[in-house]
């Protein structure tokens, strides 16, 4: 008996799981780097987040939705877990990490219907929930000196800038880390954001495997760079240099891994560029004028909400009437 099905009879080799695994591989350099810098606490934090994310997805699927086919096989919950932990300081208590995972998976992902149906990036929702619930714990960063923690607490570069502006100091008066330190990760911050280098390596891997397209990362970083550059050129004493902006505060992590999340980003190339520019501009505005020192999470979440609107932009159509 022959099988008959309508064309096409050919399907590409990629599948959801492979794409998700590509992202995990791309996250690996940053993972290793943060374990090297922060030590065992980073590993514990990551494992907690991953295990609790996967568990919550499994539990909700099994006991709440009564699905027989648990979607955990597609590895997307692991990514959410890793990304969530990347956004947290290494000193955060374990139970907070678990609550963050529950919010990320339970509220941001599964309540919308699971993979592909969520409007907001789950990891970011988890992070922002923790940030507004436990602001003190979420902004306590251990100081990093010569690629290891020394036990004391310190502020992130963007935190320093915010403080100085509040207290009326000039940027030239405060001690900011060099761009070199930021690129190689010799600064304080959350688990995944500290090394620009490791994140860029991951990003290049994603681009090479065609897991993501260049549109979102380039437009996010480009618009941030340009806007920050203009502001820096006008008032260098209160506006940080554009390089500092794109190398700090999770800009790289957000641009490469968070904003490019499939479900929460637009479908068309033009839409992706608009989305990216929106994130870049909002980030700089929040960083400069908002209450929080870093604005990537909020910028991405705000733009996530506009995605359905951006999706109304039609791609260029062959043979459309002009």
């Amino acid at each position: 008996m022959l099988t008959v099905s309508p064309s096409p009879h050919y399907q590409s080799d990629t599948n959801t799981r492979k794409l998700m695994c590509n992202v995990l591989i791309a996250l690996l350099p940053a993972c290793i780097f943060s374990i090297v810098v922060f030590g065992i606490s980073a590993l514990i934090s990551m494992l907690t987040a991953v295990i609790s994310c996967v568990f919550f997805e499994f539990a909700i699927n099994k006991w709440l939705f009564k699905n027989e086919d648990y979607s955990i096989k597609d590895c997307s919950a692991i990514i959410t877990g890793v990304l969530l932990s990347f956004n947290l300081p290494n000193t955060l208590p374990i139970w907070m990490v678990i609550i963050g995972s529950l919010v990320a998976i339970g509220i941001a992902k599964m309540s919308f219907g699971g993979l592909g149906c969520n409007i907001f990036n789950p990891a970011l929702v988890g992070r922002v929930f923790l940030l507004v619930s436990f602001p003190a714990d979420m902004t306590t960063w251990t100081k990093v000196q010569d690629y290891s923690v020394d036990g004391t607490t310190g502020a992130t570069p963007l935190g320093l800038i915010k403080e100085s502006i509040k207290s009326g100091k000039m940027l030239t008066d405060i001690d900011l880390p060099t761009v070199q330190d930021m690129v190689f990760g010799n600064i304080g911050g959350s688990l995944g954001e500290i090394s620009v280098m490791a994140l860029v390596i991951g990003g290049i891997y994603l681009l090479c495997t065609r897991t993501i397209t260049w549109h979102i990362p380039v437009s996010v970083l480009g618009s941030m760079f340009i806007l920050a550059g203009i502001m820096h050129a006008v008032h260098p004493e209160i506006n940080a240099s554009p390089l500092l902006h794109i190398c700090s505060g999770g800009a790289m992590l957000g641009a490469i891994f968070m904003a490019t999340d499939y479900s929460t980003s637009p479908m068309t190339s033009l839409g992706k560029i608009i989305f990216g520019i929106g994130i870049g501009v909002l980030t700089i505005i929040i960083r400069r004028f908002g209450a929080y020192p870093e604005g990537m999470s909020f910028a991405i979440l705000i733009m996530n909400a506009i995605v359905p609107l951006i999706n109304k932009i039609k791609p260029h159509r062959y043979g459309a009437k002009k």
């Binding site: 099988t3 099905s5 009879h9 399907q11 599948n15 959801t16 794409l19 979607s71 597609d74 997307s76 699971g114 993979l115 592909g116 149906c117 397209t213 499939y262 479900s263 980003s265 637009p266 479908m267 068309t268 190339s269 992706k272 039609k314 791609p315 260029h316 159509r317 062959y318 043979g319 459309a320």
Partner: peptide, 26 residues
């Protein structure tokens, strides 16, 4: 010969990028 098992749409936009007529298959 057989079709692969379908799963949730992840809204990756590959169908939009691939459509030679510039339509939105999803």
């Amino acid at each position: 010969a057989h079709r692969k098992k379908e799963s949730n749409c992840i809204r990756c936009g590959r169908c939009v990028d691939g459509c030679p007529m510039g339509l939105e298959p999803y």
